[in-house]
Computed example of a mutant assay.
Amino acid sequence: MNILLWSLQALLALHTTMGAVWKWSHSATETMPSLGAIPNGAWISLSGLELLLCICLVLPAFRKSLANLAPVAALCIAGEMLLFTIIHLLSSPQDLSSVFYWMTVLAVCIFIAYGRFYLKPIRIEDAVERVQV
């Protein structure tokens, strides 16, 4: 379970990093017309927040004391996906293609948070012991 959670965290970090870079080069309206309700300043701020959350997803691999950052970061990304879904549904409720994408990312985020809080908390020393054996 730990390997699966770390793999999902790494993939989510890459996904979110790409989204942050995308936000720097494309406005919300260019990305999706329904997201045009998000002001440009907030859109750019989301980019900075996403980069911070990416760091929080992988930081526990290097510092055991920061283990709670990963599930909290995953929940923040889930909140962002929920925000995008709500804004999109309020402006164009007939188009659900993007909603399925955002809900998939949200489900992965919730699984990571649940896994890290309850199923398999991060224990870096366990991974180090397995490598040394």
Rank of each mutant, 00 (worst) to 15 (best):
M1L: 09
N2E: 14
L5K: 01
W6R: 14
L8E: 06
L11K: 01
L11W: 12
L11Y: 10
L12I: 05
L14E: 01
L14G: 04
H15W: 07
H15C: 04
H15I: 00
T17P: 00
M18F: 13
V21H: 02
W22K: 09
K23V: 05
W24Q: 15
S25G: 01
S25C: 03
S25M: 09
S25H: 11
S25L: 10
H26T: 08
H26A: 07
S27V: 01
A28H: 11
T29R: 13
E30I: 02
E30F: 01
T31R: 05
T31S: 14
M32V: 03
P33I: 08
P33E: 13
P33K: 14
L35E: 06
G36Q: 08
G36N: 08
A37R: 13
A37C: 06
P39R: 07
N40L: 08
N40S: 11
G41W: 04
A42G: 00
A42W: 12
I44R: 15
I44E: 07
S45N: 09
G48F: 14
G48T: 07
L49W: 06
L49M: 11
L51R: 02
L51P: 01
L52H: 00
L52M: 11
L53W: 13
C54F: 02
C54A: 15
I55K: 01
C56E: 05
L57Y: 09
V58D: 06
L59Q: 04
P60H: 10
F62L: 15
R63F: 13
K64C: 04
K64D: 15
S65G: 14
S65L: 09
L66S: 15
N68L: 13
L69Q: 13
L69V: 12
L69K: 11
A70E: 04
P71D: 07
V72F: 12
A74R: 07
L75I: 14
L75P: 10
C76Y: 05
A78E: 02
A78T: 03
G79H: 10
G79T: 06
E80M: 14
L82A: 15
L83E: 03
F84D: 02
T85H: 08
I87G: 01
I87P: 01
L89Y: 03
S91G: 00
P93M: 02
D95N: 13
D95W: 01
D95Y: 02
S97P: 00
S98P: 02
S98T: 00
F100V: 08
F100Y: 14
F100M: 06
W102G: 00
M103P: 00
M103D: 07
M103E: 13
T104W: 04
V105S: 11
A107T: 12
V108Y: 05
I110T: 10
F111W: 14
F111T: 14
I112F: 05
A113I: 05
A113D: 02
A113Q: 03
Y114D: 09
F117W: 15
Y118P: 00
L119G: 00
L119K: 12
P121F: 04
D126C: 02
A127N: 10
E129F: 07
E129D: 13
R130V: 15
V131H: 04
V133D: 06
